[in-house]
Nucleic acid binder design. Structure first.
Lengths: 336, 336
DNA sequence: TTGTAAGCGTTATCAT
DNA sequence: ATGATAACGCTTACAA
């Protein structure tokens, strides 16, 4: 049904060779203005469009980048993707999206699928279940440009873009403390995720700086990062069942924050009142109403843009890159 | 840096021809079990992966679909993309995302970019500024499989998947009326969008069925669909400036609903109280708190899945498809 | 200035 | 059962 116009068609129609046509189209100086015009005009007339796949095969690049995130339907990631797309669009790259749904297996499959030579580079935020990153290491060593954002792997030496998670966590926790709460729990996702570690560290630092001792019982992990309602509910039930019940909670993730509010609602725990909450969240709607949650907002759009700029720089680098950056962007605390 | 393994490498290493290797790998029956095993084992050993680009060139298909939406960072679309990805992933298709930001020019560029033979099919929700669809018509006539979702073009005969916008609008408007409001305004996006027309129709029908006359002054358009704060604000200011001020408002879009709430907040118009609101919105956070908005929720994930299934059916159809469907999925009203 | 031919990685056709 | 060759659409030495 599709009968695409090729260079060959133009050549035949104009009685020229394909190479002449090719050169004329790309405006080489070693071609007579006459034929050049002839070719270009005819090409426009029949609406010739070069076949990007043939080009890719020849030039061994696809002009597309792969993006691996846990969930698209998550305000943080959708904002980041918006940023990624904005840069990619300007530079003529396609953005291929894939989701891990926080599953390690799925991450491996997606990464390999993208990498089998169909993308020029990879932008990835690790799944919450990922601790082994040999699938990425392998590809990275083979030369696939990779840039991490959000959830990074220190083991792989490349560009990384993250928010200042430690500082954001510090501010949120401090805010709770300074609002009069003293028994502050911490709800976080998987323990090996870089963001969890950074946020935990900020939380602990804030406690320490305010002379509060860390209580191990107050720290609860939800390895599925809020994807499983049960998991979040159990964590919260455990907290509420403690003899020395916390009076506030610092939540370390977007999904987890809404999950947490949702659990509180179902358990009829009033917020604030029974329990104050501060947590990471990038929902614009939440920011608009913010009935109960003090939120740490990440510059997701900017993170996406920056990561993409770095990736394209790696992809288009003529020589092997030696210096890698880890960019840390500021978060902001949204208080009501 | 990347030095990919090819069939040629295997052939050379094993002293076979490329055709034999190719056949052995794809398990043709006309090949000796011995060489078959030899080839497959060696291929696994050196981790051979077929080059999808070479395959695409040969088979004239890329195993990827293009998705065109106005904004990724929008709960409706991100949920739809989640659904799209879920089906595409299962069928081994890549999903290439592009955004129009409600701009017609950008839609044309994106569509053409995707279509120049690099995607096997297109999933599109029109931009709010699109009234001329010749760019799509052209490609569709050339044979590119296209499936519309959400914002469709009746002019093009193909599969379409939408929510029951008219019914959703009818229910929301009726809900306002039955809650005691009588002067119900309607805030909508661009007048030529299919969803606008359908929702307006539901709104008018509800008024009529409840014996209320339609007031032209009560219908306000925001062609940018809530993307421009000013535009939304002006529309609302105009409504508030009417001698016979409305007491409720039915909002026809996701972005517009939050935009509207945001304007009310800034103008210190209390909701409900000064003004009741019901509107289309797919934000899960909004659904969680829903402080003031009664929302019409669309089955975005399902719409995405269904549209993708239909598109893949078109793509993989052996014979030209004659019968096209327009699937209409139910919305649900979320009341607080 | 233009044409010829080889090559990107794969598969299909036609030998052998 | 296996190999040689052409082809998919394009670019680029190398010739002319």
């Amino acid at each position: 049904m599709f009968e695409p116009v090729t260079i060959k068609d133009i050549a035949k129609a104009l009685g020229l060779s394909t190479s002449t046509v090719s050169r004329a189209l790309r405006d080489t100086h070693e071609i007579s203005p006459a034929t050049k015009k002839l070719v270009i005009d005819y090409a426009n007339k029949i609406n010739y469009k070069p076949n990007p796949i043939a080009l890719s095969l020849k030039e061994r690049r696809s002009k597309s980048i792969g993006v691996v995130v846990s969930e698209v339907a998550n305000s943080y990631f959708s904002q980041a993707i918006d940023g990624i797309e904005s840069i990619a669009y300007d530079k003529g790259y396609h953005v291929i999206i894939s989701q891990t749904h926080e599953s390690f297996e799925r991450e491996v499959v997606n990464v390999n699928h993208l990498a089998s030579r169909s993308v020029d580079g990879l932008l990835i935020s690790l799944s919450s279940q990922t601790k082994d990153i040999s699938h990425l290491k392998f590809l990275h060593e083979k030369g696939l440009p990779i840039v991490f954002f959000d959830r990074v792997a220190d083991e792989i030496v490349t560009h990384k873009v993250i928010a200042d998670n430690e500082k954001g966590a510090y501010q949120a926790t401090s805010y709770l403390i300074e609002s009069g709460y003293k028994k502050i729990a911490h709800l976080t996702s998987s323990s090996y995720l870089s963001i969890s570690i950074e946020r935990l560290s900020g939380y602990e630092k804030a406690l320490k700086d305010h002379g509060i001792e860390t209580n191990r019982d107050y720290i609860k992990y939800c390895p599925h990062g809020g994807m499983l309602y049960e998991e979040t509910e159990n964590a919260i039930k455990e907290l509420m069942a403690l003899k020395d019940k916390p009076d506030a909670i610092f939540v370390a993730g977007d999904r987890l924050s809404t999950g947490c509010l949702s659990v509180f609602k179902n358990l009829k725990i009033s917020v604030p009142g029974d329990m104050a909450i501060a947590g990471f969240s990038n929902s614009d709607v939440l920011d608009l109403f913010n009935p109960s949650l003090t939120s740490v907002r990440q510059p997701a759009y900017e993170i996406g843009r920056l990561a993409t700029e770095m990736l394209l720089k790696l992809i288009e680098a003529k020589y092997p890159v030696e210096e890698f950056e880890k960019k840390v962007l500021e978060t902001s605390l949204s208080i009501r």
